[in-house]
Design a protein around this nucleic acid. Structure first.
Lengths: 197, 197, 197, 197
DNA sequence: ACTTAAGCGAGACGGTACGTCTGGTCTTAAG
DNA sequence: CTTAAGACCAGACGTACCGTCTCGCTTAAGT
């Protein structure tokens, strides 16, 4: 979300907002976070550099906006099988993240966050927090319905997302959604209660 | 490994090699890959910038050298319990990687590799390949001894490392080796054969 | 004269132009053309290095600007005595050139021009051409008024400036304007018509 | 003249001396003093850079050597006409200097000397001093024989060399020895005694 | 309808880092 | 001790971006 415009004067063009974020996304996918230049973003968006800075006070803020706007939401379809809901959510998310080209951006942002408090805050506030709602809810529902043996919710989260992200990151592009689903199911199989459906 | 020096003329000082790589490691941990400057590396190493370029033709090559030299080797202790060997190896590796500050460097390198064929090659050649030997060997031994149900070796790898890396990356610093071990064991529990010790 | 700024965008600060050329002049006098560094010019002018390159694409262009802006014009006072006008002009010019510290710069530029077509063009276009107007005019007036025996204008020019420049160059700093005047008059005495006033 | 070699050990190759100075001369003519690099001299001479530094402690010393070795001596042919001897000497010298390509080197050295005491000393000691012997002698003989009106010897020198050097420097390459002679004779004509031959 | 505050593209500005080149010094192996 | 080769530190080169700052112009909202 860009910094908000003052009330007076000419209003900002909404179209410019989207041109900037779209251009930034393409540039990130092309060049990576390291080699991302606002100059190229501005050129691709057909915009002056100050027009970007008017909205985002620095590169981090722009990255934040891209992550916020473009990373897929976690879509939770609630069926009778709680565990299957979890798996579907995680697989869909990982696959979309990978296909959209944002996987590497998100991962690079996490790495950057280690040395960069601003980026850490960006991630926590705009990336993880809004997404953890769905995940934690679904996990707690699964735990409550005794689908899982007694484990920490964080453990479920790590078993669910860890292998998916790791495989996508290490292997590269070509991973089928089916393979991902199998992997996620296998990862969770160790903590499923024997009687669970 | 730096570009090799010619046979003739004054030989390169080995000490300079190590000063450069050590300084680079510290700078990476301090600033992150994105904000790594060879100027700062040179200053910290007490070396002229051209002396770095004599060894590494660009930033990527230097990062390659750091990853090659400084990322811990996978130390495999062979006991009677093959699965425990695997877990120990992975936990030790992940913990060392995290504690040494190289986790974020390695992860950022993976993200970078998505857009940068040179970096992709660096990772494949100098990072993954030499380490996969031990892992693949141990996994195949575990499979052969029927400790695991019949799965792809890659699945074992992803279940083993995925959750560990994911947790360290997402959570941040403070994860105890004990917590890591529990996580890894839980991840593998789903593919262990019932009768296996 | 700096490369002209585009019409659009923020206009260049005229003050920066003068700060750069003034700083360059001081540096040239201090260090000589050989040891002139744009880094030092930029520092003295309180300006970033790219700001200089925006105006002058290289060192030669900057030197051209200094020669164009700072070398004294030939001031011709027209009295009844045409020859005295010539002498005054030459002596004043040589003395100012020497005192301003630009003598060595101009001479070094001439030497450089032997190997450097760009510099040769700089000299011809910005240094000699605009100054030759006055000289040629005055010489032709002197020839027309029969003050001189019949000689080439170029001969007059060389007799007039040659000894002055040579003395200043070879001897060094301390030459009085009076000595210069005597020298110039002596040089021309050989071509003056006997009856001439 | 290079710094003298120690008595002990392997003697220096005399051939290396000449290869260096010859290469330096060619490079100077090609590139000018400003762009002269010892690297290029060494390469052209087929010699290591330290081999040059062993003989000449810096660039100035090498230039000194070239000026000393390669600038033509003033050859004074003593005939009955003292003034004609002077003119011949000056014209021959200027013409050779020009044709050898060393004119610009010598001039650049003079300009450099303004800011560089070492170069000033080089010129005074190795260039001007050994040559002024002949000139001063010839001038004093001319003065003694009443060929000239009473003037300073320095004035004669400046009238003689000034116009020649100036013309060669300003005009460029194509000046005939005959034109030079005429110019020199004209310059001196103003101080010749009426009765002189 | 007219003022006014801000948006906008372009590009200047002081900096910082890049990757390269040279200067003068030093170190090696071979002679 | 000399030689050719080449490493070493230092520092300048010309270029690319950064984040900020004007400029001339356009565009709404509020008088």
């Amino acid at each position: 979300m860009p910094a908000k415009a003052p009330a007076q004067g000419r209003p900002r063009l909404a179209e410019v907002d989207t041109r900037i974020v779209d251009a930034a996304l393409i540039e990130m996918k092309d060049k990576g976070l390291t080699n991302l230049t606002l100059e190229a973003v501005a050129a691709r968006a057909g915009v002056g550099r100050p027009t970007i800075y008017r909205r985002y006070s620095n590169k981090e803020e722009l990255i934040r906006a891209v992550l916020t706007d473009k990373v897929p939401k976690l879509s939770l379809t609630e069926t009778s099988d709680v565990v299957d809901d979890l798996v579907s959510m995680a697989v869909t998310f990982a696959d979309q993240l990978n296909k959209s080209g944002l996987l590497s951006v998100a991962i690079a942002a996490h790495a950057e966050a280690r040395h960069n408090p601003v980026m850490a805050d960006v991630l926590k506030t705009d990336y993880l927090l809004p997404r953890s709602q769905s995940v934690v809810g679904a996990i707690e529902r699964a735990l409550a319905s005794k689908q899982f043996v007694q484990v920490e919710p964080a453990t479920v989260r790590d078993l669910l997302f860890g292998p998916l992200i790791y495989r996508l990151l290490v292997v590269g592009e070509e991973v089928s959604p089916f393979g991902l689903r199998t992997l996620a199911e296998t990862a969770l199989s160790g903590i499923r209660t024997p009687g669970g459906k």
